[in-house]
Design a protein around this nucleic acid. Sequence first.
DNA 1: AAACGAATCAACCGCGAAAGG
DNA 2: CCCTTTCGCGGTTGATTCGTT
Length: 260
Amino acid sequence: MGRHSCCYKQKLRKGLWSPEEDEKLLNHITKHGHGCWSSVPKLAGLQRCGKSCRLRWINYLKPDLKRGPFSQQEEDLIIELHSVLGNRWSQIAAQLPGRTDNEIKNLWNSCIKKKLKQKGIDPNTHKPFIDKEISNENNITILDDKKIHEKASSIEVVPKHSSSDMSTTTTYLNDKSEHMSIPITIPNNNTNPFEAISNLLFPTPNSCENPPIVSSNAFSWQPDELLQTASDLMRSDWHHQINHRHPTLQPELLGQPTYP
DNA sequence: AAACGAATCAACCGCGAAAGG
DNA sequence: CCCTTTCGCGGTTGATTCGTT
């Protein structure tokens, strides 16, 4: 299952398509239709797998594609549809004639997400960022987006060592800009320290239903809430901030900050 | 003009669903 | 049903382009 059988064959080209390849594929599909994609490369005389041909046709060669930049109306529609459909790019694309799911996905990830964040809107929930609401209610000073990003870029998470009985691992949130480090002790049944920190910081009742907000393979994350909380951790009033923002957080797992 | 980082975009990969034997 | 093949989707990567210093 999974990978196409054709992908195992030797001598298949990968990477960008040449004009000659485009012409072959276009001619073939214009004359005969695509039919079974896995047989298209052979019939069209291409050293590509069927999957690659399908993608090239859908994203580039199909005659009814609309090229060029997205209009403001299209962007607004994408935002509206995303709030209802989430990351179902093909369904969103179906509502925008001439646009492909790949094109819309790229636009969302490179442009729209950023614009929404600048407006203080969480692109995942389409609602204002939670911390801002909390801070207004409770008169807590928070960092603005620019400062969060400055701060976040100086924060790293470093798994340091296991305890002698191997039951826990101590991980450190390091703030390079302020030369400060907070130890966090994590039970070893949490295999990914980053996920464990996420669960520690956000122990919501439905956390089991939500996917982890950290990436387990790349060991990196961006969610603003985590960055804001990491920033909280690094500040002098961190106990107050954390207890206020995340009342169910287990403070005994957090060590005292150190200042090397 | 050169170097560098950010933004953009085309294409690949892996997975689950659907189809067919 | 079960197994294999094919399709389609969403996430991700990497090359290229653009903008800034």
